[in-house]
């Protein structure tokens, strides 16, 4: 067989990624050097208090979203993994369904719930807690709630696999040797689930760190995050040098976080890695 065949098969797809993804990305990096010095745009970004507040807000939202999705995902995945087969399938189906539903639809659902005439305001007015509707939308909490809703299924699905591999015997052994449920969780379940937690956290963090739709709909102009900031700079103020700088910072921070989480995972779980 000809040695060149595998290359011929791989070349078109690889070429497409290079031409349509990597070269344009290089172009964006190139745009950031368009200042007096090559680093002028980066210095300008970090000099502005407004830019920094957007960066901090984005990091905070992504971190809180990741933490909450772990708290919601761990017990849920545990229950799914220990359920009988038919119920397990149903529960996985119910986690996949939102994942395949449009992010616009899912963020929109929180507008219906948190809006001035929304579900929450109606209930609170109905039971007499408040007289006039309170503004729940366009707050950082609204964005976080929307993102947790968006990404928790991803965390659950990342965890179900590893949870299933924790054998019931191991948990049985821990408790029969006198470990309390809390101790079993901390010393047995958590270390064994760590690979799933790391995969899930990377997915949720990078997803919420770069999300556009949810912060745009639930946060609006008051809760600008890097993704919506990039869009504003590019399409509203046509400051493409700054838009490119934001883009590069997003890529760099995403990569740094992925590497950091992987090394953290290796330290926490030297056997599994």
């Amino acid at each position: 067989m000809k040695k060149s065949l595998p290359w011929l098969l791989l070349a078109p797809a690889a070429l497409a990624v290079v031409v349509i993804l990597l070269l344009p990305l290089a172009g964006t990096v190139g745009l950031t050097f368009d200042g007096r010095e090559w680093y002028s745009n980066y210095v300008a970004f970090f000099r502005s208090g407004l830019n920094l507040s957007v960066l901090y807000r984005t990091l905070e939202i992504a971190l809180v979203t990741t933490a909450i999705s772990i708290v919601l995902g761990l017990p849920t995945a545990h229950v799914i993994a220990r359920s009988p087969k038919s119920r397990r399938t149903l529960l996985i189906v119910c986690a996949v369904f939102p994942l395949l539903t449009s992010t616009v639809v899912r963020s929109f659902s929180w507008i219906v719930i948190l809006g001035r005439n929304g579900f929450v305001n109606q209930v609170l007015q109905g039971i007499g807690v408040i007289d006039t509707p309170v503004g729940l939308l366009y707050t950082q909490t609204a964005v976080i709630v929307g993102l947790v809703h968006l990404f928790t299924p991803l965390m659950i699905l990342s965890l179900v696999g590893v949870m299933e591999n924790i054998e019931a015997d191991v948990l049985q052994a821990a408790s029969s040797l006198g470990a309390s449920p809390a101790a079993t969780f901390r010393q047995v379940v958590l270390p064994l689930a760590m690979p799933g937690i790391v995969v899930g956290s990377v997915l949720v963090f990078t997803g919420s760190f770069t999300a556009y739709t949810t912060p745009q709909l639930l946060g609006g102009d008051r809760q600008t995050v890097l993704a919506t900031f990039l869009y504003q700079k590019a399409m509203i103020s046509f400051d493409w040098a700054m838009a490119s700088t934001i883009a590069v910072l997003m890529v760099v921070l995403t990569v740094v976080v992925i590497l950091a989480m992987n090394s953290l995972a290796r330290r926490l779980n030297p056997v599994g890695a």
Binding site: I20, L21, L23, P24, L25, G27, T28, L31, T206, F209, T210, Y212, A227, L230, Y231, A234, W240, A243, S244, A247, M250, V251, T254
Partner: peptide, 13 residues
């Protein structure tokens, strides 16, 4: 690669 970064880069290039 964050999708928003990719979209912007394709627009630009």
């Amino acid at each position: 690669v964050p999708e928003i970064v990719f979209g912007f880069s394709v627009l630009n290039s």
